[in-house]
Each structure stands twice: as C-alpha cells, then as structure tokens.
Lab assay of single mutants.
Amino acid sequence: LYHVLGLDKNATSDDIKKSYRKLALKYHPDKNPDNPEAADKFKEINNAHAILTDATKRNIYD
C-alpha cells in the first residue's frame, strides 16, 4: 500500500496525508471523466489511505 502512495514504511501520518491529497487530485474521476484507469487508481489510493491512516489497520498491515 505504501507504493500506491509513493511512500516507504517509515512515512509519517503527514507524509501519508500529503501524498494522498496530491494523488487524489490527480486521479479523481471528476478530473478524468473518460479514463477508467484513473478511476481504478483513485480507488487504490483511497484504500491505501484508509488503511494507512488508521493506526490499528496500519499495524496489522505492517
């Protein structure tokens, strides 16, 4: 999941948040209406963010 956000395992919560915002804006379906690959990437980014920002889920993942 870290690679989805372009981060390593030592990433801080701020790093995760910044990377998520940058990538979410880039791949958001509203910005890429005719690109199904961007929509899939956006879903991956959201999933990675949801797990890595939840301390319990992140510990389980790590």
Score class of each variant (00 low, 15 high):
Leu1Cys: 07
Tyr2Leu: 01
Tyr2Glu: 11
His3Ile: 04
His3Asp: 03
His3Lys: 10
Val4Met: 12
Val4Gly: 02
Leu5Val: 00
Leu5His: 13
Gly6Asn: 14
Gly6Val: 00
Leu7Phe: 01
Leu7Val: 11
Asp8Leu: 03
Lys9Cys: 08
Asn10Val: 01
Asn10Ala: 07
Asn10Phe: 05
Ala11Trp: 00
Ala11Arg: 00
Ala11Cys: 09
Thr12Asn: 04
Thr12Trp: 00
Thr12Leu: 00
Ser13Glu: 13
Ser13Tyr: 09
Ser13Gln: 05
Ser13Pro: 07
Asp14Lys: 09
Asp14Met: 05
Ile16Asp: 02
Ile16Cys: 04
Ile16Lys: 04
Lys17Ala: 14
Lys17Met: 11
Lys18Ala: 14
Lys18Phe: 14
Lys18Pro: 02
Lys18His: 05
Lys18Arg: 10
Ser19Gln: 14
Tyr20Gln: 13
Tyr20Cys: 09
Tyr20Asp: 12
Tyr20Phe: 15
Lys22Trp: 06
Lys22Gly: 14
Lys22Val: 15
Ala24Arg: 12
Leu25Arg: 12
Leu25Met: 11
Leu25Glu: 15
Leu25Pro: 09
Lys26Trp: 03
Lys26Pro: 08
Lys26Gly: 04
Lys26Thr: 09
Tyr27Glu: 12
Tyr27Ala: 06
Tyr27Leu: 06
His28Asn: 02
His28Ser: 15
Pro29Gln: 05
Pro29Leu: 03
Pro29Cys: 04
Pro29Tyr: 05
Asp30Gly: 10
Lys31Phe: 05
Lys31Met: 03
Asn32Trp: 09
Asn32Thr: 08
Asn32Pro: 01
Pro33Glu: 12
Pro33Arg: 14
Pro33Asn: 05
Pro33His: 00
Asp34Pro: 02
Asp34Tyr: 06
Asp34Asn: 07
Asn35Phe: 06
Asn35Tyr: 01
Glu37Ile: 05
Glu37Phe: 13
Glu37Leu: 09
Glu37Pro: 04
Ala38Gln: 05
Ala39Ser: 09
Ala39Cys: 13
Ala39Glu: 10
Asp40Arg: 15
Lys41Ile: 09
Phe42Tyr: 13
Phe42Ala: 07
Lys43Glu: 06
Lys43Val: 06
Glu44Gln: 07
Glu44Leu: 03
Glu44Gly: 03
Ile45Cys: 04
Asn47Ser: 08
His49Ser: 07
His49Trp: 10
Ala50Ser: 14
Ala50Trp: 01
Ala50Leu: 05
Ala50Cys: 01
Ala50Phe: 02
Ala50Asn: 12
Ile51Lys: 14
Ile51Asp: 14
Ile51Phe: 06
Leu52Gly: 02
Leu52Met: 05
Leu52Pro: 07
Leu52Glu: 07
Thr53His: 11
Asp54His: 02
Ala55Cys: 05
Ala55Ser: 10
Ala55Glu: 12
Ala55Phe: 06
Thr56Ile: 04
Thr56Met: 06
Thr56Leu: 04
Thr56Phe: 03
Thr56Trp: 03
Arg58Trp: 02
Arg58Lys: 14
Arg58Phe: 02
Arg58Asp: 06
Asn59Ala: 15
Asn59Lys: 11
Asn59Thr: 11
Ile60Asp: 15
Tyr61Phe: 07
Tyr61Cys: 12
Asp62Gln: 02
Asp62Leu: 03
